[in-house]
């Protein structure tokens, strides 16, 4: 016995080393890319750019200039508005879709292919579809003319390229409703229907079953899918760039414009914008997760 204990310890240590070795590649790649981007991004936004002959690190003036512009706050407001509106709409539509998908219906197999299509194709396709449907010369406008509501494209209520952002939100919702539905459908498959059945037998009505039984069960799926789509929406570039209403643009577009400006010192200003996006997104997502964790603890799930 006295002999096997050190052997056992050595074996454990060896296994531990092997385990770390297996985790190492993925950790290395993410740390270098993420950590590198993070550190250099923050340093540049604070005035470290020796390759432009700029090195005033640490210098908070780039943030100062950025945050004192009224247009920055307008851009932030627009970014958040598009992201939040699209996330909430996708969430509601996605939950409804997932709840319908767990039922049995004819041609369910076909439908399960069909609803996933937007997941499989790039956002740029969604943007093209928005242009052809919602543009002033688009299908909606033609249908309104066909119905005799308008007789000139100019009379069509502008949907794209306004700061209401209907086009941007439509693209996000088109692409993200299937994602939410897929996530929640997976959770629903995992938990089964026994608890819902039990509640039904105990006399709960549909509303009670949904809000008191189903919703708490699918909450983890709701949280993870909304985290992912909200983070994407805040950092998305192509939809606001093409379908947006011009100045003030959303923050990623603002950052891109700074970055492509002929005056390359503005790149540091762009970097300050990028860091601001990351800080704001991080803050919102962190508080969102913290509130959710607190709720989980309160209902005694963790």
């Amino acid at each position: 016995m006295g002999d096997s204990a050190p052997n056992e310890l050595a074996r454990l240590r060896r296994e531990r080393r092997l385990m770390l070795l297996q985790l190492l590649p993925v950790v290395l790649v993410l740390t270098v890319l993420f950590g590198g981007a993070l550190v250099l991004g923050v340093m540049q936004s604070l005035g470290f750019a020796p390759w432009f002959g700029v090195n005033t690190f640490p210098d908070f003036s780039y943030f100062g200039v950025l945050w004192s512009q009224a247009s920055f706050w307008q851009s932030l407001w627009l970014t958040l508005y598009y992201a939040v509106a699209a996330t909430i709409l996708s969430l509601i539509l996605g939950i409804l879709l997932a709840l319908a998908l767990v039922r049995t219906f004819p041609s369910k197999t076909l439908y399960k292919y069909l609803y996933k299509l937007p997941l499989m194709i790039p956002y740029t396709v969604g943007i093209a579809l928005a242009v052809i449907m919602l543009g002033n010369g688009g299908m909606l406008s033609r249908l309104m003319a066909f119905a005799g509501l308008i007789d000139d494209p100019a009379q069509f209520p502008q949907i794209l390229k306004t700061h209401m952002g209907w086009g941007i939100i439509a693209v996000y919702v088109w692409k993200q409703t299937p994602f939410v539905a897929l996530t929640i459908y997976a959770v629903l498959l995992g938990v089964g229907r026994e608890t819902e059945e039990a509640a039904a037998i105990l006399g709960a009505n549909k509303r009670q079953i949904f809000f008191l039984v189903t919703l708490p069960q699918i909450l983890p799926g709701i949280i993870s899918s909304t985290l992912i789509i909200f983070a994407f929406n805040i950092g998305a570039f192509e939809a606001p760039f093409i379908l947006g209403g011009g100045f003030p643009d959303t923050l990623p577009v603002v950052a891109w414009r700074y970055f492509n400006d002929a005056d390359y010192t503005l790149q540091l200003q762009g970097m300050a914008t990028v860091v601001s996006i990351a800080l704001i997104a991080g803050g919102i997502l962190y508080s969102y997760l913290a509130i959710y964790r607190r709720y989980e603890r309160r209902i005694g799930r963790q």
């Binding site: 985790l23 993410l30 981007a37 540049q44 950092g235 970055f259 860091v275 990351a278």
Partner: peptide, 24 residues
């Protein structure tokens, strides 16, 4: 915590990571 770290790329805005990496 490690699993959360591995999921991080899904919740960091692409524009932020993209522009920062482009500079490098």
């Amino acid at each position: 915590a490690f699993e959360f770290f591995l999921s991080m790329p899904l919740i960091v805005p692409e524009a932020a990571i993209g522009i920062a990496l482009l500079m490098i």
